[in-house]
Design a protein around this nucleic acid. Sequence first.
DNA 1: GCGACAG
DNA 2: ATCTTGTCGC
Length: 222
Amino acid sequence: MDIQALKQEQTTRAAEVVRADDFDVMPPRYIAGADVGFEQGGEVTRAALVLLEYPSLKLIEHRVARIATTMPYIPGFLSFREYPALLAAWEQLEQKPDLLFVDGQGIAHPRRLGVASHFGLLVDVPTIGVAKRRLCGKFEPLGDEPGSRQPLIDKGEQIGWVLRSKKRCNPLFISPGHRVSNDTALHWVETCLQGYRLPEPTRWADAVASNRPAFARLGIPL
DNA sequence: GCGACAG
DNA sequence: ATCTTGTCGC
């Protein structure tokens, strides 16, 4: 693969990302979570999509898609590695969500096209990037209290928020994916918090994509 | 040149 | 991401 060509594509596509709120439904009726895992030493990519009903936040649909892995992991180019499997799972989803949480960055990316933004553009759905670690940007130290937050800044602009979602846990890196603003992205993530570090949509998608025992026990087929 | 670096 | 049990701390 040609890294320079991919960079060019990112720059071009990033210009199409809508950073303002553009909801057709407010509040959303369905919020989905997306995550990707790997099998067979990385040869197979497994994408999971879970659909929750709002405001109950109950799981009402889940889909898993598997495809042959096409690209290695390269920091800054994660979306090219993950979106094919995510698209496959998306097509299987019977009820499309009004808002989608994607595991990874949104615009908090060197060229403003993290996987949440890239995938949001591809399926034209409002998305929010929820990452467990930082890719780029700087931020002031956070307080120890849950709810403590700091803006994530890069090249003079706010690209997201750093949020302490739970006591004694590392913070979350939240950024707009597509058709969502910085503040709205933070708002919906906080609204979906239920006592765990990760918001419900992401927590379920994470568990399903990573084949966590808790889900195997519930008899959910992967 | 050196360090950082989503999943 | 993934390989993997118990264990320390709140």
